[in-house]
Nucleic acid binder design. Structure first.
Lengths: 245, 245
DNA sequence: AATTACGTTTGATATAGGTCAAAATCCGTG
DNA sequence: CACGGATTTTGACCTATATCAAACGTAATT
């Protein structure tokens, strides 16, 4: 059996799954590591456009993204859709389904991706035995709640420019945390999907990006984007309007 | 020792706490019931305007609302505030703090209220021993995630009328679930707080309510409100605009 | 009962972002 | 490489909601 976890300065990284969010503070016995390894062993590949799960389908497992990029969306009866999040490597997806045992949203791959399936029953069982894992699971769920509240703040009180700036900086941070460039990356989603996430129309997203470009804040060409001035971008967030006077 | 739980057709209700959300499917031993009872024994009273906890303070416990009404809000650096929820009897509050051990929002009593304190360490410990409790805790957290996603949909894609209609119907449902009238109740929050929650200015809230009143959908006088036509109100939600033709 | 502070309503006007439309660009496929 | 569909950009115009301001109610306080 290969070693399930490798030591890093402050954390243990799961080698089989590359689960940033699932990385755990140390001290497990070999026995426990073995169990954790077993839990995360089922991997699966998805092509761009594939559904990881659909709203309404039965909940069995959480999914940990190994590589790739997903979006989650809820569909309103009348056809309106709301993108509720973009998920990347190391993030856990499917938490919303625990409440009813039915998935409450769709999860769609935005590029070819790999995920680890985490059967939830076994995860619960294991987390009864391993307080560290239990605590970790709770933190992951809580973090999702905090994230959602941040989006409420964004949707409820920010102007288009602020929303977009916050969005770009958030992506930047998450790429950086994974060892990619914080200042240049490829957007995996369309303007329409960005708009849905941010509560804006795609035209507004496009216009605002163009405006950022003129202002030398960013450099966009289609899906490639470079953040040229993070400081000013950061300054934009939390500005009721562009410099009161 | 008084009996901790009383049987209802499908659930067990916690007598000490009146914890709708904490009600659990049956089969606990007396021993287990005793432990649950002990967990939920610390009660506390709050006056209108009191803070249950503040953003930035250390996380120790979740709180189950026994009676009364709270709001939770996050404050942005620049002074903007976003109300992230209104909580009533039987609901659990404080889940956001688990992620960092620091409260991420304020919780403020909107009327005189009573809460049960649930020390989180002991809750985790107990839920390791009682799978039913564990599952329940997970469902509560997941339900919060689903709720938040619903609000994202509301904030991201609904017009003012829809938002308000959805808001009123949501309150109505929750009052009804607690045995109060579904069609007449007192709003515990100001127009400003409603607006913050719904991503609208207080004037827009006021105007929209006035418009609903003219349309004989509701009857408002200050904080007392009666829903006169729930069907039409429901029809409003999910309408891109008022009857296309 | 008078005073004050706070919350609400309503009106007039401004504006951010939506809508509709056309052109430009990108990308996958035969 | 050329085609066709999807995505993006840009323009012109419109509207829902914000903003500013004033009057009005309501509820707590003395």
């Amino acid at each position: 059996m290969q070693k399930a976890f490798t030591i890093t300065p402050t954390q243990i990284a799961c080698s089989s799954c590359n689960l940033r969010e699932f990385c755990l503070p140390a001290d497990f016995t070999d026995e426990e590591l073995h169990k954790l390894e077993a839990l995360t062993s089922t991997k699966r590949a998805y092509r761009r456009g594939d559904y990881l799960y659909r709203s309404g389908s039965k909940f069995e497992s959480l999914y940990a993204i190994r590589t790739g990029f997903f979006k989650t969306q809820v569909l309103h009866e009348d056809g309106r859709e709301q993108v509720t999040g973009f998920q990347m490597a190391g993030e856990i997806i499917g938490l919303d389904a625990i409440s009813t045992d039915i998935h409450a949203c769709d999860a769609v791959a935005l590029e070819d991706s790999e995920v680890c399936e985490l059967p939830f029953n076994r995860l619960e069982e294991l987390s009864r035995q391993l307080p560290t894992l239990q605590r970790h699971l709770h933190k992951i769920m809580s973090r999702e709640i905090v994230r959602d509240q941040g989006i409420m703040l964004l949707l409820g009180s920010m102007r288009a420019e602020e929303r977009l700036a916050a969005f770009l900086l958030n992506l930047s941070q998450r790429f950086a945390a994974r060892g990619y460039s914080a200042s240049a990356f490829r957007l995996r989603m369309t303007r329409q999907e960005i708009g849905s996430y941010l509560g804006l129309k795609l035209e507004t997203v496009s216009r605002t990006l163009s405006y950022f470009q003129e202002s030398r804040l960013i450099d966009v060409h289609n899906k490639s984007i470079a953040l040229l001035d993070m400081t000013r971008l950061l300054g934009l967030v939390g500005q009721q309007r562009a410099t009161p006077f």
